[in-house]
Design a binder for these strands. Structure first.
Lengths: 189, 189
DNA sequence: ACCTGAACACCGTTCAAGT
DNA sequence: ACCTGAACACCGTTCAAGT
């Protein structure tokens, strides 16, 4: 005899994402998620295998959200690639400030590499495109990796409080953007 | 009536660090540590407050170890600052390959910023010095942060498997070093 | 077909009792 | 002074029983 569904997988993932931000990774328990979607913990296992899979889904949702924001930046008409690169970096940083736990889940995952490759590729497309405009298509991937690594590292350290000892963090970010942009741009561009 | 000590705090921290690498963060349980040092779990609480404090001690030990390795690089006589910066970067990356879990604990800590400021300062001293030689003393801190952020970001992504899709990772690392070095060096130097 | 209570293994932590 | 077993609260997960 069928029972009406009281929740759904998207519902669960959304609630888990909210819980991640409000309570932290260790506050994201199966019981807390279950309570907020209106079922008991065992029912969650009808829709996902275990907590690890739930974390992977939350991570993937965050990657897709970030990717969409970056896409929107690049979609602006007639942009200078230098400006676009700066805007991409600032957008990623802003995302990290709004959803620090989600950002950490993307860029500092646990032991195993979850991270859906297709979502990752979609999220990096904008950066690769702009990096290619600056560095030339042959170096697009390397240049994009250099920039992505720097953004990730800078923001991770910022979130970890490693920059709390003196100096203007915004200024350091702009310094890094400017230097990085010149570093990857080929002389002609 | 005194009981002989069967372990010590340095012992506990060392074992916890080994366990972190071999079993991962979630394998680093109080019970596993206790078993390996030869006591029962409750005895650990005579020497530390809780698991979080143990993690902080393991993290600090890793920071100090990394800092000593970086110091050793800079201690080499009459070096070109460009070469020194590259060697610092490669040394940090090698540390991450040898002790990936320890590296992650340093650069991608949990929610709260533990991280002992004085250990952190000691570990960054070498990078700040070389960065200052390249960028000038006024920009030493910003330049060091730019480089540190990039190294952290690059290696974190490498450990997370984000680079597994094509391209030579070593080559990308050298590409990044070269570009970063030129990016922070002032024209004269 | 989905939901539930009960149960199990495991973990961090506390505490009274041992020596 | 340090160590221990017992206990508590909590968590992830399984499963038989409900509808």
């Amino acid at each position: 005899m069928p029972t009406p569904e009281r929740t759904s997988l998207p519902d669960i993932v959304r609630v888990a994402g909210e819980l991640l931000e409000s309570e932290g990774l260790q506050g994201l328990t199966m019981q807390a998620v279950a309570e907020r979607v209106g079922v008991r913990a065992p029912s969650l296992y009808k829709r996902l295998r275990n907590r690890e899979e739930l974390l992977a889904l939350v991570q993937d949702a965050a990657v897709q959200d970030l990717g969409m924001r970056l896409d929107a930046v690049v979609r602006e008409p007639d942009q200078d690639p230098r400006c676009a690169l700066g805007e991409l970096a600032r957008t990623a940083r802003q995302f990290a400030h709004e959803r620090p736990a989600g950002f950490r889940l993307i860029f500092a995952p646990g032991a195993e590499g979850r991270l859906n490759p297709s979502s990752l590729a979609a999220a990096s497309a904008s950066v690769v495109r702009v990096a290619g405009q600056l560095a030339g298509d042959q170096h697009a991937l390397e240049a994009a990796r250099t920039v992505t690594a720097w953004i990730n590292g800078f923001v991770s350290m910022e979130l970890a409080g490693a920059f709390h000892l003196g100096g203007d963090v915004n200024q350091a970010f702009e310094f890094g953007i400017a230097r990085l942009t010149e570093a990857i741009a080929r002389p002609g561009e």
